[in-house]
Simulated assay, not measured.
Amino acid sequence: MDNFEYVSAPHRVVFGRGTLQELPSMLEKIKAKAVLVLCTPQQISTAEAVKAIIGDAGVSIFSEATMHTPTHITEKAMLAAKDKGVDGIVSVGGGSTVGLGKALSIRTGLPHLCIPTTYAGSEMTPILGETENGRKVTRRDPRILPTAVLYDVDLFKTLSVDMTVYSGINAIAHAVEALYATNKNPIIDLLACEGIRTLCSALPLLQADGNDPAARHQALYGAWLCGMCLGAVDMALHHKLCHTLGGMFNLPHAETHVVLLPHALAYNASAPAAAGAMAKLAAALPDSAGDPVRGINALYQRLGIRLSLQGLGMPETGVDEACDVAIANPYKNPRALEREGIRELIRRAWAGETAKAKL
């Protein structure tokens, strides 16, 4: 067995049903007595419910969290935190709200408690992507990792079927890239394969019945594992392209991940450095017959996923623009970044074509 390094995330996680009631005791543990509750405009009612549970410690709600974490929104949240004199942050929502919590925490040093309501997995990572002037810049820092995470399966009952599927695929993407990361290790491999298998089992059940409590529990567990993968190792082509496209064209985060995953996987499938990872991935995906690209395509067909970058609002001229940005910023990937192949990857994703292993 090869030598490897594994670094465990030093934060507290509470998982289960009805765990939202443990919020006051969790705030005590992180020594937060006056907190700012963050949310998007669409989740104000959930934030108000959280604030009610917190009681007097819930000083105020900031409800302007926005996808891709634009810096001008973070600056407004900082002013609100300073004005209210808070000593902690509670973010309730998906990746947009968690991202704002991270951005605020790294700038102020305030402890950050996350309450996720989607399967995006951002709460498990020391990674922050921020957008300014149409460019999304990502950085990794241990201080970005939230102080604590509270998973309550009951909060996912009202998550729409579409967002359930899209954020679940987003989570799977974390585990897929973790399998062929340059700093991968056998511990993360186990988490990645278990997370993928669990989500592949849960998502079709939830598409059929979004109120299935066992499937909701299973999906959140799988997403947690996939998020841990994202936080523990480096990401590659798929995540870099998602950040590039999301920042440039303001595309919805989860849906962009869904569109790009099969094509980024197809680009890397033939790389000798990824051969072992592809075998493990194929074994974790149902109906793969030993081919991970076939396995992802089969999963999408089963879930009825038909998305394209064009349908998400990306102009056709963006194919070359995004390719230029992707090639100009080299990063670790099992296959070298070849302009012709990257452009074809983006073009196929823009057109909504089925992923093919040869690019």
Rank of each mutant, 00 (worst) to 15 (best):
R135V: 15
A223C: 04
R197Y: 02
M124H: 07
M163T: 09
A215P: 09
Y166V: 00
W224Y: 13
Q207P: 03
C200Y: 07
M228E: 01
V137W: 04
M163N: 14
L205N: 08
L225P: 01
A173E: 02
G129F: 01
N183C: 03
L199G: 03
R216Y: 10
L205T: 08
L159F: 10
D209P: 06
P126L: 03
I188P: 00
M163I: 08
N170G: 00
D152K: 12
I169H: 04
H243G: 05
D162Y: 11
E123C: 09
G121C: 02
G168P: 08
G247E: 10
L199R: 06
T244D: 12
I188Y: 02
C229Y: 01
E177K: 05
A232H: 02
R143Y: 07
N170P: 02
T147K: 12
A181R: 03
L199H: 05
L155P: 04
W224E: 03
L205V: 06
Y151F: 15
T198K: 05
M235H: 13
C226R: 01
G231C: 02
L205D: 11
L245Y: 07
G121R: 00
D141R: 05
L230A: 01
G168M: 08
G134Y: 07
K184E: 08
G134T: 09
L179G: 08
Q218H: 11
